[in-house]
Amino acid sequence: MNEWLLIFFMAAVTYLPRYLPFALAGKIRLPQTLERALDYVPIAVLTAIIAQASMIRQGELDFSLTNYHALAALAAFLVAIIWRNLLLTIVVGLVCFTALRLLV
């Protein structure tokens, strides 16, 4: 029962931030500065997620060569710069990770 209550509250605090700006769209005009700031949201947020997910292993920063997550991300980054192809980037990243895990 307590867990259903948790789900209810979680659903509320997840939905509200998603909906609020949508609800206000057209009603309020954001200041131009803020609008330009929002242009950088995808790059800023997604890069921060990538950094933490790839460089932090077992709760600590890991710059060693045994951090295969980071090496796979680096390989994916190079592929993405050259070919700009999402599917190819994912495939190379995964192959690189699997190869490191199995071979090294």
């Binding site: 995808p42 990538i50 790839s54 994912i90 995964l94």
Partner: peptide, 12 residues
């Protein structure tokens, strides 16, 4: 790791 490389492919 799949998620990480997918995001890399989106952001880059």
């Amino acid at each position: 790791v799949a998620m990480i490389v997918a995001l890399v492919g989106i952001v880059t």
